[in-house]
Amino acid sequence: MQQRSASSTTPHSSTIDPQELAAQEQLDQGTEALAQGDFPKALEHYKHSVQIKETSIGYYNIGVVQYQLRDLAGSISSFESSLAHTPAGVKPTLPDPTQPLPELSPALVILADTHTNLGAAYILTKPPQPEKALEHLQKALMINPDDGEVCYNLAAVLEATGELDEALVAYERAQKLGIQRAELNIKNISAKILGKKREEAEKAQSSGGSVSASDVGPQQGGAA
């Protein structure tokens, strides 16, 4: 869960829109309250902001507070509203693989965080909705492919849904991106994959089938 709040993602216009200014003031007051740990007051200011003018940032901040208050259904609704109000020009572009990744604009950072937070909320709902969680975590990685935490979270959901090979790849990438705790996951999931292949080999043998040694060989990053 990305917990940062935002006050603005666009430069202030030289032509002041009174409605926009009033909404911004409520955002600023909400962020101040959030920094002081006053979640109800922050939520009140953020909701007042979107009542004045609906913005992606306003709904995003509402979702952050609702998530902290464990209102998962409310946070999902707010984050989805944030996505719906994202300006049309704010969208990820395919990076040049030969060049370093460009720095994300503030609006893209919020967009990536929104998808990340939706992934976390959907996996914590009862019952969990892993398909939706995977969808949003994958979109977050499209925007910021070097976010190791998101990659780790994606791997965890893939593992939980039984997609072990894909999960292993994601854990290995997370480790390369600096998430050191992924090392233990790599060992554990490699052991799971090996055990699954052994089980399949035993079933094949008991049913008269045949397997090759490569079918049950150790996987990359196998368990110690």
Results as ranks from 00 to 15, higher is better:
residue 61 N to I: 08
residue 74 G to Q: 01
residue 92 P to V: 05
residue 110 I to A: 12
residue 58 G to I: 08
residue 90 V to P: 01
residue 61 N to M: 02
residue 101 L to N: 08
residue 67 Y to F: 15
residue 80 E to S: 14
residue 66 Q to K: 14
residue 50 V to S: 00
residue 78 S to V: 03
residue 95 P to H: 04
residue 65 V to C: 05
residue 93 T to V: 12
residue 62 I to R: 00
residue 53 K to R: 11
residue 70 R to A: 10
residue 40 P to N: 09
residue 90 V to T: 13
residue 103 E to C: 01
residue 43 L to I: 04
residue 53 K to V: 02
residue 62 I to H: 01
residue 75 S to Y: 08
residue 82 S to G: 08
residue 55 T to G: 00
residue 79 F to K: 06
residue 63 G to C: 05
residue 56 S to A: 15
residue 37 G to A: 07
residue 77 S to W: 03
residue 69 L to D: 00
residue 38 D to E: 13
residue 68 Q to M: 11
residue 65 V to T: 14
residue 94 L to H: 11
residue 36 Q to Y: 07
residue 38 D to N: 15
residue 112 A to E: 15
residue 67 Y to T: 15
residue 63 G to W: 07
residue 112 A to R: 15
residue 55 T to I: 01
residue 107 A to L: 06
residue 59 Y to R: 05
residue 56 S to Q: 12
residue 61 N to T: 09
residue 61 N to C: 10
residue 116 T to C: 13
residue 69 L to F: 03
residue 57 I to D: 12
residue 42 A to P: 06
residue 101 L to Q: 11
residue 69 L to P: 01
residue 46 Y to L: 09
residue 85 H to L: 12
residue 45 H to Y: 13
residue 71 D to F: 02
residue 100 P to R: 08
residue 37 G to F: 10
residue 36 Q to A: 13
residue 91 K to Q: 12
residue 40 P to Q: 10
residue 98 T to M: 13
residue 42 A to G: 14
residue 43 L to Y: 04
residue 51 Q to Y: 06
residue 50 V to D: 04
residue 57 I to N: 06
residue 66 Q to W: 00
residue 40 P to W: 09
residue 102 P to L: 10
residue 39 F to Q: 11
residue 58 G to P: 04
residue 56 S to H: 11
residue 48 H to A: 15
residue 74 G to W: 01
residue 109 V to S: 02
residue 95 P to T: 02
residue 64 V to K: 03
residue 87 P to A: 11
residue 42 A to F: 05
residue 115 H to D: 10
residue 66 Q to R: 14
residue 79 F to R: 07
residue 46 Y to M: 07
residue 107 A to R: 04
residue 69 L to N: 08
residue 109 V to R: 09
residue 115 H to K: 00
